[in-house]
Amino acid sequence: MQNIIIFAACYVVVNIIAFLVYRQDKRKAENGAWRTPEKTLIIAAFLGPFGAYAGMRRFRHKTQKLKFKLVPFFLILHCGAIIWFGYIVLIM
């Protein structure tokens, strides 16, 4: 049970980091500074889709670009994995 709590805490931290990466890139865009590579933003979205999606919506950032339409897909994928993992844990 302790491992699950540690994993969940790490997952929350990764999502917070993804949110902050999107916030930072939006601020860089507004200030005309060097931007975060899109590849980095996509990786952040894959690892922390809840934070990335929240960042996209909160800061209205990267919502129109085609490749960032993957973020909701990553979100659904993670939701499915969480449900599956919860099911496995409840059975055992």
Rank of each mutant, 00 (worst) to 15 (best):
70 L>K: 11
6 I>Q: 12
70 L>E: 07
37 P>V: 15
1 M>P: 13
6 I>E: 12
49 P>C: 01
84 W>T: 03
55 G>I: 03
58 R>A: 07
9 A>P: 10
78 H>V: 08
46 F>P: 01
6 I>G: 11
86 G>T: 06
39 K>G: 03
85 F>M: 09
78 H>W: 04
33 A>R: 04
91 I>F: 15
58 R>E: 10
90 L>W: 13
40 T>H: 11
57 R>T: 05
63 T>N: 12
51 G>C: 00
54 A>N: 14
21 V>G: 05
24 Q>W: 13
68 F>Y: 02
15 N>H: 04
30 E>T: 06
89 V>E: 12
36 T>V: 15
65 K>V: 09
85 F>K: 08
86 G>H: 04
63 T>H: 10
23 R>S: 13
21 V>M: 05
2 Q>I: 06
77 L>K: 00
32 G>D: 09
43 I>W: 01
92 M>V: 15
8 A>V: 11
68 F>T: 10
82 I>N: 01
72 P>N: 00
11 Y>I: 00
6 I>C: 10
44 A>F: 02
15 N>L: 08
14 V>L: 02
55 G>Q: 03
73 F>G: 07
56 M>N: 12
48 G>V: 12
58 R>F: 06
75 L>C: 05
25 D>A: 13
33 A>T: 06
73 F>K: 01
45 A>L: 09
36 T>G: 07
67 K>C: 06
24 Q>F: 12
44 A>T: 02
59 F>H: 03
45 A>H: 00
67 K>L: 07
77 L>I: 05
23 R>N: 13
24 Q>R: 11
29 A>Q: 04
3 N>Q: 11
46 F>S: 02
14 V>C: 01
37 P>I: 15
63 T>S: 10
86 G>I: 06
33 A>D: 13
87 Y>M: 12
43 I>N: 02
22 Y>H: 04
82 I>F: 07
36 T>P: 13
5 I>V: 06
22 Y>L: 05
40 T>W: 09
44 A>V: 00
84 W>I: 01
54 A>G: 05
73 F>C: 06
39 K>E: 04
10 C>Y: 13
57 R>G: 03
44 A>Q: 02
62 K>W: 04
68 F>V: 03
25 D>P: 04
9 A>M: 13
74 F>Y: 15
24 Q>H: 14
26 K>P: 01
9 A>D: 09
83 I>A: 12
71 V>K: 06
18 A>F: 01
66 L>E: 14
63 T>V: 14
80 G>E: 12
62 K>H: 07
14 V>K: 00
51 G>F: 01
26 K>V: 09
88 I>C: 09
40 T>Y: 08
45 A>D: 03
58 R>C: 08
46 F>A: 11
38 E>M: 10
68 F>D: 12
40 T>M: 04
77 L>Q: 10
78 H>E: 15
41 L>G: 01
26 K>H: 15
13 V>K: 01
6 I>F: 05
5 I>A: 11
32 G>P: 15
30 E>H: 07
12 V>G: 03
12 V>E: 07
72 P>I: 02
38 E>D: 14
6 I>K: 14
81 A>N: 12
81 A>G: 14
16 I>H: 08
43 I>V: 14
2 Q>M: 03
47 L>A: 15
84 W>A: 06
53 Y>K: 05
43 I>M: 02
47 L>M: 13
46 F>R: 00
31 N>L: 05
25 D>R: 04
9 A>E: 07
34 W>I: 10
83 I>V: 08
29 A>E: 07
52 A>T: 08
2 Q>K: 11
14 V>T: 02
